[in-house]
Amino acid sequence: MDSIIELKNVTFEYDDNDIKNTVISNFNLEIERGSFTVILGHNGSGKSTLAKLFNGLNKPSAGEVFVDGISTLDEDNEIEIKRRVGMVFQNPDNQLIASVVEEDVAFGPENLGLRPDVIRQRVDEALKAVEMYEFRTAAPHHLSGGQKQRVAIAGIIAMKPECIVLDEPTAMLDPKGRAEIVSTLHKLNKENGITVVLITHFMEEAEKADRVIVMNDGKIITDDIPKIVFSNVKKLKSVGLDVPQTTELLYSLKNNGFDIKTDVISIEEAADEIYNALHLEEK
């Protein structure tokens, strides 16, 4: 597997008043280049810690994290690692630096010391990719949460990263904003070939992912394609996660004696499945 991020026997601990807290221990994970991976887990499952290990914001206490073959412990390459793995956080307000959208998007490339005309071109491309080009001269505080978050994503992709890691980017957004972000990410993944690692606790955002990793207590519980992960309703519920509403419905129908598959996620497929099941019943 051609992996962009690789965690080898990683342990991460922090000191809290001289008490050592181990968030994750002996953790192994590889993220494939060009893939769309969703990491699910409820609060305190260690998923944010994991995200910050991916680009060297957190340094492993033991083991090593490799980004494109470079260890995050290598201090000379810190900028290189951050350029390759961009990161978007929960609160868009705390990620925007400038008072004009395009100047904010330019912040990353400006730090890389590129030529001004190259920066200009990258900023325009990035804003077009997230469909925020017409807002390029707007002030961030006049935008909606979803729009601000898309500007934050543009700020990252203007640095031309190999991979974007998003730590609950939709937690503070309304359903519309959430849908905007998820479709933007899928577009970037398909059209620009950017590897996406989306950390979230909203199940429905994982529907179209290539791979879903469920975390609990610093450990991987399940790691598979969405259909299989979500069909295991009991396991997901045991770690405090909800399943998508469609799966939930199909699951309870099955428990009540319907002959029905539970490994479909999209609403259309679920509707078909229910229709077929009811049809069989009539016969």
Binding site: K82, R83, M87
Partner: peptide, 8 residues
């Protein structure tokens, strides 16, 4: 966030 955007 600034660090993630290569600010040094």
């Amino acid at each position: 966030a600034m660090e993630c955007r290569c600010y040094n």
